[in-house]
Structure formats: structure tokens, C-alpha cells
Design a protein around this nucleic acid. Structure first.
Lengths: 241, 241
DNA sequence: GCCACAAAGTTGTCAATACAACTTTAAATA
DNA sequence: TATTTAAAGTTGTATTGACAACTTTGTGGC
């Protein structure tokens, strides 16, 4: 229910509630949810506040709205096991090559970043005997206490996030760019300096903490197919049968 | 200036105007822009409308806000195009620039591909006055009957898929690579030949037909931030409170 | 000159209200 | 029974207004 005395804004509470309902199966994918007016009456809040809540879920891909028709449940983008769909690089790499190896470049260090403390970890993954990707990870120190004691080389970071710390990943934001390999990157990836590489800047948002993990991943897209699968929400437009 | 008679919503016009000012250097990175109240007075619009405009830019990474302090220009940020999260390029492009234009390169032609007939359409999208992406689309002829009669230049292909033909998109598969611009691509995108570009090979699977749309998209990732947001399913890992 | 406190200014949240643009539903007519 | 049109319902945009929570600025006293 909506707790008007809570420190959490009403629109966030409603967004969370709606999301729980969807996840619990109370709304099926493709189904229309209650109208904005109905939700406003049901929770005794204003329609702009309802819109702010649903806007949150629209941006997250959970809902979609169509003027005049209604607000529909979208299919949440399911994680594919390939690299760019989900936080866990370990699983994707293991599926590509069971004998793949991920080795740390140096040890976990402290680093300061945007006025906060992070653990920094750099690692190189080798698939089918070839250097495939270079990762530079920053994990927020306040979120991942005692990280150096709790993860070891070879451990999956996403597994640690979930199993060791008990967090859940809510959202990943990725940005794609091309960079020219510098001397160090070139050496580590077995390429010539200046070669263009696919660079993915990734922010992993936990349910409990935003931007808890920030990573840059450099991919040898010339050697491997870096794919992703996106499940797309069902639309309300008529479907031929 | 804000044109209240325009079909473009006022908040989008203001967002666009602010971005132009920032890009023109009228606001430096790190600098505080005019307050919400000042902008409201200046443009004779409501403060919620100003907030909606700045919220747009906050989401795109161009602005950031701090309660009590003000609204600041973020570190130099290319306009975000949320191209790679969802099927529709048209929507993503329109959000980045309401005045964006997509023009066909030639007309729709028949093409044979993997033992089937396709309609082939090439088009160039211009965002903020700059060539942003080049698309080479193949639409399966048996799925999209009479396509040339049913879509026109400027039409959204994903809209046509859904509205005109009534299909629903079930899944998108994407593959990321880097290619060096050939002569024609270089000319169309306003770059030098051989420049590395982000290339996305995309297959759109309809509920009713697999691989109904196959596309290659070449992005000027040096001019725009091509981002995506992935929602992650809730895991059964326990959640700390 | 420094410190504390109040005033002013800023963003964040919330609401009522209105109209536009669209879709859906129901009723009336042929 | 089918089609057309009007009514109802839905989302999209916008405004005015208010208060909370925060930051910044200015003033007064020591």
C-alpha cells in the first residue's frame, strides 16, 4: 500500500508496487493495467503522481503507454547468456568456451571516482586461446565491503554481487563506442596500437544502490561475435493469426 | 524561441533549445544553468513544464540537478540515442532530435537473400543536422506484401510492421562489430573513407515470422552516444535491506 | 575576520484542473 | 445485422499553486 508518511516518494512506492504486481503475475505481458484515473482513485493520489510512477516503469521498459488506448505490460528484456545482455561476463564467456580463463591484471586497488571510494579490478578474458576482452571494473566500496577478502581471481563478479552480498541487479545501462587501442590495451589484447575496438561503458544498478558497479569493457569484436538478444514487449496492435 | 502553436510539445522545444545553447558553448561543462523559476519566467511557461524539459536532458546525461543547488551542465556528453534497446529507430531518433530527418537513399527494391525475396530499403538519418546513422534494411517480401505501396519516406518501419501489417515483434538479435567505412558510406556519413564505425547487424523476429526484418545499422558513435538500458529479472538471491 | 543564524533561492514532490488527441464502446439508423 | 456516429474513456500536455528538503547568500554579533 501507499504510505504517505514514508520517506520514499509516493510515486516511487507506486512504481514499486506496480512492478511487484507484474512480477507476481497479477498482470500478464501484453495486458492493460488499470487506467491512470483508476489508479489515482484507488490509491487516493493525484493523476500526475500516477503518471510519474508509470513513467518510471515506462523508462525501464516494464510498461508502455498508448494515447487513448491505455497502459500495457511489456515483456521485461530477458537476459541472454551472451555478453552484452547481462551483467555476468563469466557465464557468457564460459558458454563460448568452457576452457576460457579470466585472469586479474594486478590486484584489487582502492580508487577514488566522482567523490566516492571504489574497488578497482582489471581483468583479461581469454576465449579459445585468444584474448577476447579487457575489463576495468569499479565497485562502490560502501556497497561491497571487504571485497578483496571476499572474491578471488576467477570468481564471477556478478555471482559475488548476488551470492556473496545478496544484492539484486535491477538495471544495466550500456553505452557503445569505438576507441583506438592504446599501447597497454594493444599489448594485452595482442593487437597493434591504434586498432579500433568496441568499447562498452556499463553501469550496473542494483535494486538497493544505483551505479554500484561501473565497468569499461573492451572487446575484440574482430575475433568474436558479440551478440545480444532483446525480448521485445508485446504490443496491443492487432496480431494476424 | 518557444512556439506555443507548434505541434512539438513545449517541453520538447525547451529541451531542444537548452541543448542547442549548451552545444553552442553558452553554458560550459560544470556551469549552472538558469534556475527552473528563471526559465519559467523567461519563456512564460509553467515550472513543471520546465522540469519536464530538463528531465529529458537529465536522462540523456546532458544535465544533472542537485536539490537546493541548481541544474548543472554535465561533462561533455554526446546526444544520447537509445537506439539499441528497442526495435524502433524512429522513436529513438525523434527523442534525440525532434527535427531529425530520415531520408531514403533510392527507392525500395527487390533483392534476393538466402533463397528468399526481400524488399530492400536504404536510408540515412540526420540528427541535429549531422548524419547519424545509415541503415540497410531487408524486409521479407512474403511477410510484407506490397511494401512499396504501403510505406513512404519518413514512415517508421517498426510502426508499419505493427500498424500497417499488424505483426508483433517478439525478439531482436543484434551483433556488434566495427567496420571501416567504404567510399559510399564515408560520403553519406560525412567522414573519411576507412574510418572505423560501429556496425550493428540486427534481426527482428516477429511472433509469426522469424527474421522477417534484417538490417545493418552503421552508427556515427563519434558524434552520438548510442546507449541502451537493459532491465534485469529479479533473482532469487536474498536481498539485503 | 569568523561564526552562527536567518532569509532567499533552488530542486523535489504533490495536487487539482483543463484541454487536446487518441481509442474504445455503445447506441442509433439503415 | 452492419455501419456510422456520438459518447465515454484513455493518455499527453500544460498550468497554477503549495509545501518539503536542500543549498546558498547575506547579515549581525562577537
Amino acid at each position: 500500500m501507499i504510505d504517505t508518511q514514508s520517506a520514499t516518494p509516493i510515486y516511487m512506492q507506486l512504481a514499486h508496487l506496480l512492478r511487484l504486481q507484474i512480477e507476481a503475475g497479477e498482470y500478464a505481458v501484453g495486458e492493460k493495467i488499470a487506467s491512470e484515473n483508476q489508479l489515482a482513485k484507488q490509491f487516493r493520489i493525484g493523476r500526475p503522481t500516477v503518471r510519474q510512477a508509470t513513467e518510471l516503469l515506462v523508462q525501464q521498459g516494464i510498461l508502455s503507454r498508448k494515447r487513448g488506448a491505455g497502459t500495457y505490460v511489456e515483456a521485461v528484456s530477458l537476459p541472454n547468456v551472451d555478453l552484452l545482455s547481462f551483467g555476468g561476463t563469466g557465464i557468457a564467456i564460459a558458454q563460448a568456451d568452457p576452457d576460457a580463463a579470466t585472469c586479474w591484471l594486478g590486484t584489487i586497488e582502492m580508487a577514488r571516482r566522482a567523490d566516492d571510494d571504489f574497488y578497482r579490478l582489471r581483468r583479461l578474458s581469454v576465449i579459445l586461446g585468444k584474448p577476447a576482452l579487457l575489463e576495468d571494473l569499479y565497485l562502490r566500496a560502501s556497497v561491497f565491503a571487504d571485497l578483496p577478502m571476499r572474491v578471488q581471481e576467477g570468481d564471477s563478479i556478478s555471482n559475488a554481487v548476488m551470492e556473496e552480498y545478496g544484492y539484486t541487479i535491477a538495471e544495466i545501462q550500456q553505452q557503445f563506442a569505438i576507441l583506438m587501442a592504446n599501447e597497454q590495451q594493444a599489448e594485452r589484447l595482442g593487437i597493434r596500437q591504434g586498432m579500433p575496438l568496441l568499447s562498452v561503458d556499463r553501469e550496473i544498478h542494483l535494486t538497493e544502490h544505483r551505479a554500484a558497479v561501473q565497468a569499461n569493457i573492451i572487446c575484440r569484436s574482430d575475433l568474436f561475435n558479440f551478440r545480444q538478444t532483446i525480448m521485445v514487449p508485446r504490443h496491443h496492435g492487432k496480431t494476424t493469426q
